[in-house]
C-alpha cells in the first residue's frame, strides 16, 4: 500500500520533494496570511465588549492550534522513525521542534498582550496557559536532548524517543491541568457545534488558521531540507547541489 512512499526514504529524493513542497506552499501561505491578517485587522467588525484588542485572536488562536498540531506531528513522525528505523524522519522531528516552540512562544506572547487589557494581568495560573507553557518545555526538552549529544545520529534517535514519551503524556497533562484550574474561555469554534463567533469575524480567523498551517508546512519542509543536506554534507548529491547553486 505504501510502496509509493519508499523512494522518499532516500535522502536525495526526500530533499527534492521537500524543496518542491516549500516552493509550492510558501506563496499560498503568504497569500492566506496577508488576506487573513488584513481582513482581520482592518475590516472585521469591532467587538462590542473587547473593542479593538480582540483582533489579536487572529494570531493567537492559529499559533496556539498549530503549536499543539506541531507537537502531534512531531510525536507521530518520531514514532514512525523509531518503528521503521527511517533516518530521514528523525531529521523531520528535529526540523519541527523549533518551529513548534516558536509557535508556542507566539501563542503565549499574544495571549499575554491580550490578557493585560482584558483580564488586567499579563499572566494567570490558568489551565490553558499553564499547559501551553508546559508544551514549551516539552519542545525545549526535545531540542536540548538533541543538542546534548556529539553524535547527531544518536541525538536524533534520543529526541524521537522523547517525543514519543511526550505524546503519551500530552493528554494526561492537558486534562490534569484542566481540572486543576480554569479561567480561559472555552473553545470558540468547534467542529461539532455552531461556532459562537459572528461570521464576519470567523472567516479571517479560519483563513489565518489555514495560513499558519501552510506556514508550518513550508517552514518545516524548508528546515527539513536543510537538515538533510547538512547531515549528508559528505555525499555526492549535496556537493552537486552546492555547485549548481554557486554557478
Amino acid at each position: 500500500m505504501f510502496k509509493w512512499l519508499h523512494p522518499y526514504a532516500k535522502p536525495e529524493n526526500a530533499y527534492t520533494l521537500s524543496e518542491k513542497i516549500y516552493a509550492f506552499v510558501i506563496p499560498l501561505a503568504t497569500l492566506c496570511l496577508i488576506v487573513g491578517s488584513l481582513w482581520g485587522l482592518l475590516f472585521a467588525p469591532t467587538d462590542y465588549q473587547q473593542g479593538e484588542s480582540f483582533r489579536l485572536i487572529y494570531f493567537h488562536v492559529p499559533a496556539a492550534i498549530w503549536s499543539m498540531g506541531a507537537y502531534t506531528t512531531m510525536g507521530v513522525l518520531g514514532f514512525c522513525a523509531l518503528v521503521w528505523q527511517i533516518r530521514t524522519l528523525e531529521l523531520a522531528v528535529i526540523a519541527i521542534a523549533p518551529i513548534g516552540a516558536i509557535f508556542t512562544i507566539l501563542a503565549l506572547a499574544t495571549g499575554a498582550i491580550w490578557g493585560k487589557p482584558m483580564w488586567g494581568t499579563w499572566w494567570v495560573w490558568d489551565a490553558r496557559l499553564t499547559s501551553e507553557l508546559i508544551l514549551l518545555f516539552l519542545y525545549l526538552g526535545v531540542f536540548a536532548l538533541y543538542f546534548s549529544f556529539d553524535d547527531k545520529r544518536t541525538g536524533g534517535k534520543a529526541a524521537c524517543i522523547l517525543a514519543v514519551v511526550g505524546i503519551v503524556n500530552v493528554p494526561i497533562i492537558h486534562y490534569s491541568v484542566e481540572w486543576w484550574n480554569t479561567l480561559h474561555q472555552g473553545a470558540t469554534i468547534t467542529k461539532f457545534d455552531k461556532p459562537s463567533i459572528a461570521g464576519d469575524m470567523l472567516w479571517p480567523l479560519l483563513i489565518n488558521i489555514v495560513g499558519f498551517l501552510l506556514l508550518f508546512i513550508a517552514l518545516s519542509s524548508y528546515r527539513f531540507a536543510t537538515e538533510l543536506a547538512k547531515s549528508e554534507a559528505h555525499r555526492k548529491w549535496v556537493l552537486k547541489l552546492v555547485r549548481k547553486n554557486l554557478s
Binding site: 525545549l140 526538552g141 511526550g166 503524556n169
Partner: peptide, 22 residues
C-alpha cells in the same frame, strides 16, 4: 537517554519535570 550526552542534570530536569506535572 542522557547516558551518552555531555550535559547531565540540567537537561534531566528539563526532561522529567514537565512530565511529572499531572
Amino acid at each position: 537517554l542522557l547516558l551518552g550526552s555531555r550535559k547531565g542534570s540540567a537537561v534531566m530536569a528539563l526532561l522529567v519535570i514537565p512530565l511529572l506535572i499531572p
